[in-house]
Design a protein around this nucleic acid. Structure first.
Lengths: 122, 122
DNA sequence: CAACTATATAATTATATAGTTATATAGAGA
DNA sequence: TCTCTATATAACTATATAATTATATAGTTG
């Protein structure tokens, strides 16, 4: 069998491109920053402690990928999440990674680490 | 506010790594090939028409990322999906991309293209 | 229009990695 | 042990891209 695929080559390419967009920590952090609501570039730059051109470039990448939107207001440009799907993606990956890490712990027969900052005062 | 983040830096890094793993068309195609069940390396190489070392390298990457498993049987090594989450991820990305593309169509006021190979004979 | 501010782009450098070719390893069988 | 086969690894090349520095653009205010 040559092609047991569900996706065409072009579609696979497109999906890979999306994943690659999310495969950069700085871009994930930008998305996290926008999760609370729209932000001007300057606020993102400040929050992430990176250079303005670097943030701008990542914003353009996310914009082209359709993950964020922009809106002009005077001198400021506000960016916001266009496709909340990204957060579901992150949750999925995150919980899967967590579960795997816990499994590895069991596999190595190590005790569960104490939780940091356990609920409750004192 | 400096850190409005839900994820620690290390976790963000980990999640990005996972996404990057899925950001390569060849690796997506390997996963698609494995969707039907475990396969020896040789079968994957044949199905994807790539070189054996290249496939092997991608398999190691996916293995380290915990997305696939391996099992030896004589000279053959069978790989299989370890975490079916990847397919849910792909579906999410895929449907989001599709919807966006349709939206762009509307935005440009273009007519819907005819579906290829419509159901029904002749 | 000139000066200022926020953002975008260009040019560059450094690093990561996909793919190739050649070689190594590990198990099977004579 | 020698040979054969399946897979893995090493060394290399070519390409993509993240971050930086310098500059351009677009809107604002005087």
């Amino acid at each position: 069998m040559k092609t047991p695929l569900k996706m065409s080559g072009a579609l696979t390419e497109l999906v890979a491109q999306r994943f690659r967009l999310l495969g950069e920590p700085m871009r994930l952090r930008i998305l996290q920053t926008l999760e609370g609501g729209e932000q001007p570039v300057s606020a993102i730059v400040e929050a992430l402690e990176s250079s303005q051109p670097n943030i701008s470039k990542h914003l353009q990448a996310l914009l082209q990928g359709g993950l964020i939107r922009r809106r002009r207001e005077g001198l400021n440009i506000f960016y916001s999440i266009a496709d909340p799907m990204v957060f579901r993606l992150c949750e999925l990956v995150c919980s899967s990674a967590a579960q795997q890490t816990r499994a590895r712990l069991v596999e190595l027969d190590l005790p569960n680490p104490a939780r940091r900052a356990p609920a409750g005062r004192r």
